[in-house]
Amino acid sequence: MALSQDLIDILACPKCKGTIRLEKDQSGFVCETCKLFYPVVDDIPNFLIEEARPWSGAGSGTGTGEPAPA
């Protein structure tokens, strides 16, 4: 089941409150400002900053970027 657009539209980075981008495969949200990847598990976005993964920036904006190795 895909994430609902009405939720995606209002989400923001919990750290900087800026815009976040949903990966094309809906695996998670990327904050390019904070360089953090927030995973989506079973259609529930996890915005616990302590559990966010560093974001490498590779492929940013193409939907093909990968979280940096944990």
């Binding site: 989400l11 923001a12 980075c13 976040i20 915005f47 900053i49």
Partner: peptide, 18 residues
């Protein structure tokens, strides 16, 4: 009904959306 996980002190939403 939608769901998100975060602490109450650090909510992952844009300003003025509720």
């Amino acid at each position: 009904l939608r769901g998100v996980v975060s602490p109450a002190e650090c909510i992952p939403f844009a300003a003025e959306c509720f």
